[in-house]
C-alpha cells in the first residue's frame, strides 16, 4: 500500500460519520464529567469540539454528496463558524465585576478575566450610578431593579439611562449589568495630621443577604487597620410584606481602631493616632457585572443559520420523500431504508 493511499484512507476514516459519532460521544463524556465533577472541564470540551470540527472539515473534503445538499452544508458550516467564533470570543472577551458607590466614578474592576487579545478600553469609561430602587415581594423575593446611571459620551456630553435586570448599559462594546449584590456604604474622610484629607467609602457586605453581618475591616491611608459596623433598629426589608430597599431612618457607625472604640452619627469625628476620621454620611453601593465579547451578534447569526438550515434541509428531504412509503403488512424487526441525518 503506498503512502498516498494510506493517507487517503486515514482521511476517509477520520471524515466518516462513524467518527462523528465517536466525537459526539467524547463531547457528551466531557459534559458529563463536568457535571459529575461540579465544574467545567475546558480542555476536555475543547479537545472534543476541536475533533468534531476537524471531522466536519474532512467530511466536507471527502464527501461530494455532502456538498451537494446545500441546506445541510450550510447548517454544518454554521456550526463550524460557531466553534471559530466562540474561540475568537474567548480570546478577545472580558468578564469582570466591580462595585460602585453612589455618585462616585468607576475606578476599576474587582475581578476580571480577560482574553489575551483583549484591549482594555473600560478604564476610559466615565460611569457613575445615581442610586437604585429595588422592590421586594413578601418573603423578601427580589423584584425589579431600577438603577439610574450617568456617563460621559465621546463628545463630552453627560448621558443618562436606567438599567437593571435584563437591561444592561452598553458602552463602547462593554455590557454593564446590575447584580443582586448591593448594600450600604459609609462615606469617611481621613484627615492626617499635617497632611491632605482623603475621602472614601467602605462597602459593607451585601444587604439584605448579610443583614446580620454589616461590618467590615479596612486599612486607613496611614496604615492603621480599622473596623466599622453599621447599627440600626429599623426592620428595613420586612419579610412579612412588600418592601423596598432604603437607608435606615437613624443609625450609628461603630468604629474600632486598635483599643479605641467610638459610635459616630453622620458628621461625627474621632481623633485617632495619626489624624482624625470623619464619618460624613451613609450611602449605597451597587455591584455590577461587565462583559465584552465582540462576537455576540455573529454567534447569534451563526446559530440561527444552523437551526434554520437544518429545518430547511429536513423539510426539503421529507417533501421529496412524499408520497409516503406505502403501508405494508407488519414485519417485526424489519430493517428500514436509511436516509441522511
Amino acid at each position: 500500500m503506498n503512502l498516498s493511499l494510506l493517507r487517503r484512507r486515514t482521511l476517509a476514516h477520520f471524515g466518516s460519520l462513524r467518527t462523528t459519532l465517536v466525537c459526539l460521544a467524547l463531547l457528551a463524556a466531557a459534559v458529563a464529567a463536568g457535571l459529575v465533577g461540579g465544574g467545567v472541564l475546558v480542555p476536555a470540551l475543547a479537545v472534543a469540539i476541536g475533533l468534531l470540527a476537524l471531522n466536519l472539515m474532512a467530511a466536507l473534503v471527502l464527501h461530494p454528496a455532502f456538498r451537494r445538499q446545500l441546506p445541510l452544508l450550510v447548517a454544518h458550516l454554521a456550526l463550524l463558524a460557531l466553534v471559530v467564533l466562540v474561540a475568537v470570543g474567548r480570546l478577545t472577551a472580558l468578564d469582570g465585576r466591580f462595585e460602585l458607590t453612589q455618585g462616585l466614578p468607576f475606578d476599576g474592576l474587582i475581578e476580571a478575566k480577560a482574553g489575551p487579545l483583549h484591549h482594555d478600553r473600560l478604564s476610559r469609561l466615565d460611569f457613575r450610578h445615581e442610586g437604585f430602587e429595588i422592590h421586594y415581594a413578601p418573603g423578601r423575593k427580589r423584584g425589579a431593579t431600577r438603577n439610574p446611571v450617568t456617563w460621559t459620551d465621546g463628545e463630552g456630553r453627560v448621558q443618562r439611562a436606567v438599567i437593571g435586570d435584563h437591561r444592561p448599559l452598553v458602552l463602547d462594546g462593554y455590557r454593564i449589568y446590575t447584580s443582586s449584590n448591593k448594600g450600604f456604604a459609609p462615606l469617611l474622610t481621613w484627615m492626617p495630621d499635617g497632611g491632605e484629607a482623603v475621602s472614601g467609602a467602605v462597602h459593607l457586605p451585601s444587604f439584605p443577604v448579610h443583614e446580620l453581618q454589616q461590618s467590615r475591616e479596612w486599612t486607613l491611608p496611614g496604615g492603621q487597620v480599622a473596623w466599622v459596623m453599621l447599627q440600626f433598629d429599623d426592620k428595613l426589608i420586612d419579610p412579612t410584606g412588600p418592601a423596598s430597599f432604603r437607608l435606615p431612618d437613624s443609625h450609628r457607625l461603630v468604629l474600632r481602631v486598635g483599643d479605641q472604640r467610638a459610635e459616630l452619627a453622620p458628621g461625627g469625628r474621632v481623633d485617632i493616632p495619626g489624624g482624625t476620621l470623619v464619618y460624613e454620611r451613609l450611602s449605597t453601593w451597587m455591584g455590577y457585572r461587565v462583559s465584552f465579547d465582540p462576537t455576540l451578534p455573529w454567534l447569534l447569526a451563526a446559530s440561527l443559520l444552523a437551526a434554520l438550515s437544518l429545518a430547511w434541509h429536513y423539510t426539503q428531504r421529507f417533501v421529496a420523500e412524499s408520497p409516503p412509503t406505502p403501508v405494508r403488512p407488519v414485519v417485526p424487526g424489519g430493517r428500514p431504508e436509511m436516509d441522511h441525518a
Partner: peptide, 14 residues
C-alpha cells in the same frame, strides 16, 4: 443529534 446521526450512519433496525 447523536441518535439522528447514528440512524444515518449505522442503519440500525427500527
Amino acid at each position: 443529534a447523536g441518535a439522528l446521526h447514528a440512524r444515518a450512519t449505522l442503519r440500525p433496525p427500527p
